[in-house]
Amino acid sequence: MSLATDTTTDVLQLGTHRFTSRLIVGTGKYADYEIMGEALARSGTECITVAVRRERLIDSAGNNLLDFIDTSRYTLLPNTAGCFTAEDAVRVARLGREILLGLENPGADWVKLEVLADKRTLLPDPVATLQATEQLVADGFQVLCYTTDDPVTARRLKQAGATSVMPAGSPIGSGQGVLNPNNIRICLEYLKEDDPEYPVIVDAGVGTASDVTIAMELGVDGVLLNTGIAHAKDPLRMADAMRHATEAGRLAYLSGRIPKRLYATASSPEEGVISRPPR
């Protein structure tokens, strides 16, 4: 067995960033910032996504997200959510970097790139995502690309210099889980061929713990989620569940599952049974 089973050395390496937790959690859509802070803590995450928006147009009470986040505890991962062109995504990435430099947060050198095609599906525009990746890599960013589960696009993004490719399990916030595990498998084959350490993250669509576990069991390196925790009836308990689900899925992947069979195989010895099987 060459598989590493020592979880204390089983770390998530994303470019120059290294984490013990394989869960990346978003900071959006919580009922309030206190619940968000507690949910993040319970999830066990060390890396949280944030969005860049115009000052003073979001929270009329004057609360700022950063008043509720210990930026020495979490590596921030700024996203380009809401951008529909490569140009805007590059601008937002640079603004995010400027803010994180001011905060002296290690996340200043990376970005979660989202270039969306339309508001209804929030599906990524693959051409614009590729263009933005090239520009941001040239600008010195470590780029984590949100994309569909299309293996060809995934490979092109890696070739363009993406630090990680992050296929969606299903549409953002949809809670449908991993709709096409076979595509995720092919993405993993394409991206890890000759480069087994290349990190692949399932980003978006997971609704509950089993979705996370299924993704991790496929062999992805981590899961990025937000709505699944933030909009659960009890976000704090769901944060716990997502932490366990991530660990369970990772351990099961490393352990190597049994093959599926059509018929049963007895777990108890067949010799010495006092009963006779039916004929």
Partner: peptide, 29 residues
């Protein structure tokens, strides 16, 4: 369309018609 680094805020002089964005971090996924 160009970021003005914090260290240059005191030196960056505005001109008629300039377009500025002042942004911060908010919750997001």
């Amino acid at each position: 369309l160009e970021v003005v680094p914090r260290a240059q805020h005191r030196d960056a002089i505005l001109r008629e018609g300039d377009r500025l964005e002042v942004v911060t971090l908010v919750g997001g996924g």
